[in-house]
Design a protein around this nucleic acid. Sequence first.
RNA 1: GAGCCGCUAGCUCAGUAGGUAGAGCAUCGCCCUUUUAAGGCGAGGGCCCUGGGUUCGAGUCCCAGGCGGCUCACCA
Length: 502
Amino acid sequence: MDELNDQIEQRIKKLDRLRSLGIDPFGGKFNVKDSAPDVIARYTQATKEALASTPVLVTLAGRVTALRRFGKAAFASIQDGPASIQVYLKKDVLGEPGFALAELLDIADWIGVSGPLFRTKTNELTIEVQQLTLLCKALRPLPEKWHGLTDIEMRYRHRYVDLIANPEVKNIFLLRSRIIQTIRAFLAARGFLEVETPMMQPIPGGATARPFVTHHNSLGIDLYLRVAPELYLKRLIVGGLNRVFEINRNFRNEGISTIHNPEFTMLEFYMAYADYHDLIELTEELITALVKEVHGQGTEAIPYRPSLTDDRTLTISFTRPWKRMTYRDAVREHLGAKPQEITDPAFALAQAKQHHCELKGGESYWQLLSLLFEELVEPTLINPTFITDFPVELSPLAKRNAADPELTDRFELFIAGREIANAFSELNDPLDQRKRFEAQVAERAKGDLEAQHLDEDFLRALEHGMPPTAGEGIGIDRLVMLLTNQPSIRDVILFPQLRPEK
RNA sequence: GAGCCGCUAGCUCAGUAGGUAGAGCAUCGCCCUUUUAAGGCGAGGGCCCUGGGUUCGAGUCCCAGGCGGCUCACCA
């Protein structure tokens, strides 16, 4: 043990005292018959008199989170899952040996109790413990009861303590789990098959991002942690799995911030015979279902506070249908420009300069528009908005628009000024796909480390024929942030990436 | 990567002007059989993030570093 403070020392001493009483401080199986949440739910209405006349015996277990001693009796709160219940430890009832154990209890210990329910003078539902079992002695104390654990670094590094001390933290992760379960059920109900594709890929593809590199010893090759599952999921569509989805981690070797963790959870799903219009409908339905799952069935709007330092809270309305706008029109509207102006590259350049976009020189028309979009439009997209018709230049895997070959059949969904979903009709022309890869390879050669690689096997798969397919990706962490009103991604990831302790 | 802020007991925090390091909770001892931030009396507990410097003297001032947070930039 690295540090031996008096708190730990005292608890270690108690191990011997327990053993001399014949008690194993790190006991074995305990036959749990009830749970605190369940008992509280079932007997919340039971009166003092009812409990006295028809005794209800319960047996449950949990962690001691508070202890109030009175010499020959004590009250303890024990935490069992999402609920906490009070137990009463009384010498008369427990007897000598049982009470000797009670006297050696500390906050943080795990105990099993059984006995009848009763109500105290203050009417609190309480277990009068007849049988007390030590399940596990804790050697470290819990944080202070009133403030809990507030040091942010400690909360992330010692998440196990955070989860014990801060009930609202536990609740976020319960919600996260429910959100993911709801997504699974939603997709399964529509005939989507959940699959798992490689996390370690010889060629990282499916997104423009810098990958992590690792090495396989016996193969003697470098492998990349995936930046996206996209190219593998589309191979499955080629293989005839018409509707597939994957919820799993992506890894991107980029900065860390309140909205970026090096590994993050992504939902991607692909639907044969559909196009991006179908996914707009599906996305509205899915996210509406999630809003209702988290906030209640009647919910039309939710609050969201995007920044820790700014106490401004947004109200986001999910009333359908959500706004739809083309990429170019969104920029045009914000500039108050005329249709003939917005297509003019010189106009775009002038506007980019005027709005202080960071220009490296030599930007294409669509790159300029992209800068203007990010600078001007994105932050204003508070209520859910589908932005459609992205330029082909910025969409190397999306199908060309039939009417305008410069554009693709693609949308991104923005909520609270952030991209929540990205979807398109998938490019299934292997010859066009090859050209797009080649353009990306040329970008790489020019030094763009995020540009994509040419994946010969993926092209071969497309050459076997991929039916018209629509595909979408939704970043789960940011979605959970939005639905649970958390300004930092670290508050929706159990173990966010931190520098190691010294 | 840059700027700003933080780091003191197990936890939450004070620490005046540079002069022997404090409180509450927790811990230990005593009292206490319906408390719920229980109460009363008493006690112990410190690498003040690390390393330099200034000074008779540094938790405090200066420099460098570590870790964290936020903001900005890139990405989802």
